[in-house]
Nucleic acid binder design. Structure first.
Lengths: 229, 229
DNA sequence: GTCGTACTTGTACGTTCGTACAAGAAGAGG
DNA sequence: CCTCTTCTTGTACGAACGTACAAGTACGAC
C-alpha cells in the first residue's frame, strides 16, 4: 500500500500535488486511412482537390478513425473534428454518414466488436489443435497484448457499458466470446473463472505496462482448469 | 458469440442500427454535498444569499462532487459546470480552488484512492481474523460490489491510466493494494493470480450487472491459493 | 449529349466549454 | 471603529463543440 497520498486538506488555493493530466493535446491526422483509390487532401497546389466517390470506403475510414481516436482520447473526448482530421476527410463527411456523434461512436464500437469476433475464431482454431490448452492460451493472450490499442478499446467499451446500458450487449458479447471459447475445453465453470482471470490479468498488464509472466499465468490457468468440481 | 453484428457496409447515409448512446443528459445538482454549515443556493427569495466561509469544506465538496460526476459521465465528460452544479456551488468556486480542470479531476481521483486505501485496511483486519480466507474474501468482494459507483470509478481510473501515464501510479496503487493484502495469506504468486481473478470478476459483474456467484468464486480462489508451487 | 440523384465540401449557427477576472462580502487584527 | 487579507460570486471572453445546410461535383440513366 504505497499510494502517493496527499492529505488533500489544506487552506490555500493551489495545494494539488497530484499527477497532472496532460490534457490530451489536439489530435493530428494520419491521412493514410483512405484506400489507394482516394487521394490525400492537398498534395498539390489546388486548394481542395475533390476526391472521387467511394461511400463504403469513407464509411469504413470514418469508423476506423473513430476507433483510433477512442483508443487515444477515450469515448468522452471523441469529437467529430478529431475523427475527420484523423480520417483525412472534411468535417461534413462525418455527419453525412452518421446522423449523430453517438451513432458514429456506436458504429465504430460495433466494427471493433466484429473485428474482435473474427479474432476469436482464429483463437478457436488455434486452441482446437493445441496439445496444451494453457500454454497456447497464454501465447494467444501475449500476442493479443502486443497491440495495446485494441486492448484499451476493449476496456474502454466495458467501462462505458457500465455507465450506459445501451452499450451493455456489445460489451457483454465481447466478454462472453472468451468464455464460450473455453467452454468446450474446460467446461462451464472453469471457463467462467479462467476468462475472469485473463481479463483481470490483461487489465493489470494494461495499467502497469509490464510484460506478461507466461509461466505464472500458465500455472494459474491449469489450477483453475483442473480443480475438482 | 452472439454479437448483434451489422455488416456495416451499406450504401445509404443512415443504416446504423447499433445501440444508440443516450448522450448523457445534463447533470442535475444534488445540493446536499455541503455539510450542515452551508446553505442551499436559493431556498428563499434572495437572489443569491452569500454563504459563510469554509474553504476546506468547499474543497472537499468539490472533490466529492467531481467523483460523482466521473462515476456518472466518465472522466472525459466531466466539466467544471457539472461539478459546480452537483456541489451546489457557483462555477467560479471550481477554478478558485483548483487551477485547472485536470487538477480538479486529479484531486478527486486521489481522494477516491485515499478512500479506497482506508477501505483496504478494513479488509486487512477482516481477513486477519477470518477462519476461512476464501469465504471472507468473497464476502468482502460482494459488499464492495454493492456500490457500483465506487467500482466504476476504479475501472474508469484504470482505463484512464492506460491512456495517460501520469495517472499510472494512482491506478497501480489501486490494483496493488489488493495484491499486497493477499501476500501474507497466500504468498506472492497466488496473491498475484487471485487479485487478477477478483479484478476480472468485478469487471464482469460491472458489465453484466449480474449478482456475484459466491460459491463458484470461493472455489476458484481456493484452487489458486492451494495450487502446488 | 442532358438530366437527376448521390455524394462532397466549406461554412455557419447556436451552445457549451475552460478559464479569467472584477466587484464585493466575511472575518481576523488592530 | 477601520483595514487588509481571504474567500465568494456573477459575468465575460475566445475556443471548440454538434449539427445543419447550401452550393457544387461526379457519375449512372437515358
Amino acid at each position: 500500500m504505497t499510494i502517493p497520498a496527499t492529505t488533500t486538506a489544506e487552506g490555500g488555493p493551489q495545494p494539488t500535488t497530484g499527477p497532472p493530466l496532460p490534457a490530451d493535446g489536439p489530435i493530428q491526422p494520419t491521412a493514410d486511412s483512405l484506400p489507394p483509390g482516394g487521394r490525400a487532401p492537398a498534395a498539390d497546389a489546388q486548394p481542395a482537390a475533390r476526391r472521387s466517390r467511394d461511400p463504403e470506403a469513407r464509411r469504413a475510414a470514418l469508423a476506423a478513425a473513430t476507433i483510433e481516436i477512442i483508443a487515444e482520447a477515450g469515448i468522452g473526448r471523441t469529437t467529430h473534428r478529431a475523427v475527420a482530421a484523423r480520417a483525412g476527410l472534411p468535417l461534413g463527411a462525418t455527419t453525412y454518414y452518421f446522423p449523430t456523434l453517438d451513432a458514429l461512436i456506436a458504429a465504430a464500437l460495433q466494427k471493433a466488436a466484429a473485428d474482435q469476433e473474427a479474432d476469436l475464431e482464429l483463437w478457436a482454431t488455434r486452441l482446437r489443435d493445441a496439445p496444451d490448452l494453457a500454454v497456447t492460451l497464454v501465447e494467444l493472450v501475449d500476442e493479443y497484448m502486443a497491440d495495446r490499442r485494441t486492448v484499451r478499446i476493449e476496456f474502454e467499451l466495458c467501462v462505458a457499458a457500465a455507465r450506459d446500458a445501451a452499450l451493455r450487449p456489445l460489451a457483454e458479447a465481447w466478454l462472453h466470446g472468451l468464455h464460450e471459447l473455453l467452454v468446450p475445453h474446460v467446461g462451464e465453470d472453469a471457463a467462467h473463472d479462467i476468462s475472469a482471470l485473463l481479463d483481470g490479468t490483461m487489465l493489470h498488464l494494461l495499467v502497469t505496462g509490464a510484460p506478461l509472466n507466461a509461466p505464472a499465468l500458465t500455472a494459474a490457468i491449469r489450477a483453475l482448469a483442473d480443480r475438482p468440481r
